[in-house]
Computed example of a mutant assay.
Amino acid sequence: MEETPNHDVNNRLATCHTPVGNSIQQARQVLYGHTSQYNVPCNTPAVVASNVQQKLSFSDQPSPLDPRQMTNLEAVLNDIYSKLQNIDTLPNLLQSLSSIDARLGGIENRFSRMENEIVQMKNDVNRLENRVKGTECNNSELSERLNYIEMERDHIKQENYDLRERVVEMQARSMRENLLFGGIEEDTCEKEDRDNIQTEKVLQKFIKEKLNILDNIKFHVVHRLRPRQDGKPRTIVAKFERRKDRDRVLKAARDNLKDTHYSIYEQFPNEIMERRNILWPIFKREQRAGRRVRFKEDKLYVDGRRIFPQDVTYQNNRQNHSAPNKQMDRNDQQDPPFLLKHFGPPTGVNQQPIVQNM
């Protein structure tokens, strides 16, 4: 069938650049994917303004539709429907958002409190650090003061030791002219003699008869000590006027009083007597061994080397506290050579020969 001139006019009007035409073309593009012929009514403003005779013709045949386009259209409509359904849940969503907002507000408050607590903890740590620094300074000052006190203590201890030694030396000097006489029987007239005149006569008689010294020896003081616990006669203390007389009597006693119950010995302070008691066994042992021994007051010399009481006490303690089964290396021993020579190594130490020229 041939197209009529009126149909050509309609096509030309439909494709004209009018608002309605543009809308129709866009709709066709969306729905069908291409531009199709559509008869625009003749009474549109654009057609009326064209002063062209218009005739509207309609086709009885429906426009063909592509199945793929229908599927896409259904998918679009389903998507729109599903989104419209989601709009119905908007109040619940808003309520959930309100709950989430409240919870977020609570979390913000908790974080704010935590930040405040952290700041407070930092301040506490800073205060503690300052206190620790102050304590360290105080400890340093206390340590210095303690060191100073220890130095002062050692100094005072040394001074005390020196003073005690000076006192002992002064006592020893005051007793250098003294001798102690033991075993001399007491005369009955001595008990009523408060001036000790009778005691001096008894002593002079003893010196002449037992020591064979006929000279008239003079004394500063002569008296007896307190009673003895063993019931023996009280000891006589005599202070000679001359040191030579004292030494002569002491020498005569060594020669004449052997194997008798009489005894004559020097008087010393208690401190010196304690030291002599420690050194006396060493003196007797070295004397029996034939070594050069000299014993003066609290000073013992063996072969020209002095032995101190502290060395003897230390070595005795080492021997008493050494384990009998404990083996020790001689190289680890820091004992003085003299002690190793005269006392030997502690118990349990390997016995090795000691060089004689030490």
Rank of each mutant, 00 (worst) to 15 (best):
R145C: 01
K205G: 14
V168N: 11
D193R: 00
L163H: 08
E150P: 00
L142N: 05
Q198D: 05
D230Q: 06
R224L: 01
E136T: 15
R127D: 08
K208T: 03
R166T: 10
H223T: 04
H220M: 08
E144S: 13
I197S: 13
T199Y: 02
K157F: 09
E136M: 11
Y161W: 08
L211T: 03
E186H: 07
I217C: 03
H155I: 15
V168F: 03
E190K: 04
S143W: 04
L163Q: 09
N126S: 11
K201E: 10
E185F: 09
N212E: 07
L180F: 02
Q198G: 10
G134Q: 09
I184N: 03
L214E: 06
E129V: 07
L179T: 05
K133G: 05
F181G: 03
Q204I: 01
E185W: 07
T135E: 06
R131Q: 11
L211P: 00
L163G: 02
N178Y: 10
P227G: 04
S140F: 04
G183R: 03
V125C: 06
E129W: 01
D187F: 09
L214N: 08
E129R: 08
E177Y: 13
Y148N: 14
G134E: 07
V168M: 11
E200K: 05
E152R: 13
H220D: 11
R173T: 12
K133T: 13
R226Y: 08
C137S: 14
Q171G: 12
M175L: 14
E200N: 03
R166H: 09
N139V: 15
L179N: 00
V168H: 06
Q229V: 14
C189R: 13
G134Y: 04
N147E: 09
M175A: 08
R194K: 12
I149R: 09
Y148T: 15
G231R: 02
E192K: 15
K210M: 02
E185P: 09
R228C: 06
Y148R: 14
L128Q: 05
N212P: 00
L146Y: 08
I149T: 10
Q171V: 04
N139M: 15
M170N: 12
M170E: 07
E144W: 01
F219E: 01
R224Q: 03
T199V: 15
L146V: 09
F206K: 01
K157T: 15
K210I: 00
E190N: 02
H220L: 07
E141V: 09
K208N: 01
N147F: 05
E185N: 14
Q171E: 14
R127W: 01
N147K: 11
E165T: 12
L203F: 01
E186G: 05
E165H: 07
E165R: 12
L214M: 09
Q158T: 15
A172T: 15
E136K: 09
K218I: 15
R153Y: 12
K157M: 13
N216Y: 05
R153T: 12
G182C: 10
E192C: 12
C189G: 14
E150A: 10
V202P: 01
A172N: 12
C189T: 14
E186A: 10
R194W: 05
Q229L: 10
L211Y: 02
E190D: 05
